[in-house]
Amino acid sequence: MSLTVARIEPSIAGVGDYIELMKPRVMSLVVFTALVGLVLAPVHMHPVLAFTALLCIAVGAGAAGALNMWYDADIDARMARTAARPIPAGRLARGEALAFGLTLAGFAVVVLGLLVSVFAALLLAVTIGFYVGIYTVWLKRLTPQNIVIGGAAGALPPVIGWAAATGGLAVEPLVLFLIIFLWTPPHFWALSLYRAEDYARAGVPMLPVVAGAAETRRQILRYTLILTPVGVAPWLLGYAGALYGIAAVLAGGAMIALAIRVRGEARGHTASKQMFGFSILYLFLLFAMLLIDRMAGGLLLWGHVATGA
């Protein structure tokens, strides 16, 4: 029996490569939605603890991104959109990404549990585990429903933010979860419509690859029609003001209009690209309005207290 030992070259990975592994743009959206969950919670949280919770959630998201790039390096190398990532570009070894991801995940969960809330830490661990184990390893290469089910991982940060503040769960963060969960399919399917060749080459069974563009366009419209009323729910349930309600209705109307355009687009991908771009703005707008609404409410309350009204 002969044993072949591969020679491992010393790493040339720079700090920037490790930051890229953490998917900073995804991290920023995760931190933002977690912040909204944290701010909406009806308890006062010390700013240092709030910062610690957000830092741990950010690092946890970064860990999930690194572990995703570790496992998906073969797929990433075959897709134009991801071929320049650190592993397929040859700047970083897969083992380095695995070690980095596991270390960050461990630190994020343990620190969140020790300093803020054990329940929030458990939720963070579940989120990382779900994104890596269920989405990346299991579903992504198996079924066109990959991003539908996998979307749960991206939808959990506001729930973790709420749990960090309160130590428990409530209807409010679950509605935020539902908004992101229902937003994920039309968002990613709009992208996959004009990246279908890339996904096909990589062997990823995205909906346009498996079921065709027409079915994908139909599904985008269906999910958008379910998403938009849920987007208005925080106002209807009474924990967001009229300003949020109006913004959610108007932005939801724009989402439906774009989804109808995507549905009717016979050639080209102009509407799909617009839908993808606007969907990011839509989610950002909803959560920003929730934040503004809560802060405006806080200022109003403070004004009443200050004037003795």
Binding site: P10, S11, G14, V15
Partner: peptide, 12 residues
């Protein structure tokens, strides 16, 4: 290059 990268990682 490897030395520079290692130093940067160590500082980080």
């Amino acid at each position: 290059q490897q030395q520079r990268a290692r130093r940067a990682r160590s500082i980080a």
